[in-house]
Design a protein around this nucleic acid. Structure first.
Lengths: 68, 68
DNA sequence: CTGTGACTAGAAGTCCGTA
DNA sequence: TTACGGACTTCTAGTCACA
């Protein structure tokens, strides 16, 4: 488990939603440039923001971390 | 999903290890009082520290979030 | 053994623009 | 559409004394 894995998992699932970074960030009330840096693994995101993101992806935490 | 849920889940699983907060915190190279505040839900812990803690609990992320 | 308030440094997070 | 950067504000990391 690593920040990079979480980042690419977010990217993978966000792509599945069909939304751009910008639209997804807007949907979950998060700054678009900040969300972009999370998705590229350049940020040590806090739990509250991770909850926000995973909720926005419409998956459970268990599913998000499936296989890890 | 909430900080409180994560906090109590940490407490639950840490108790299962049989270690005190102090000993567990020492094991994962984290300050005892900082870990205590995480376990009581008073901190919005970052992903890196959450990874450290969950690894120390010897469970997978999937197991940690089981049922959520 | 555990919980908490206070504190500082530095990172998180926001808002703007640009390629 | 995404990535990145500057400048800014807010908050967490990490520590300590004390209860």
């Amino acid at each position: 488990m690593s920040i990079e894995w979480v980042a690419s998992r977010i990217k993978e699932l966000r792509a599945k939603t069909g939304l751009s970074q910008e639209k997804f960030a807007f949907k979950i009330h998060m700054d678009r440039s900040y969300f972009a840096s999370v998705e590229t693994g350049n940020r040590n995101v806090s739990l509250l923001n991770l909850i926000k993101i995973i909720n926005g992806l419409n998956v459970s935490f268990e599913d998000f971390f499936r296989g890890k």
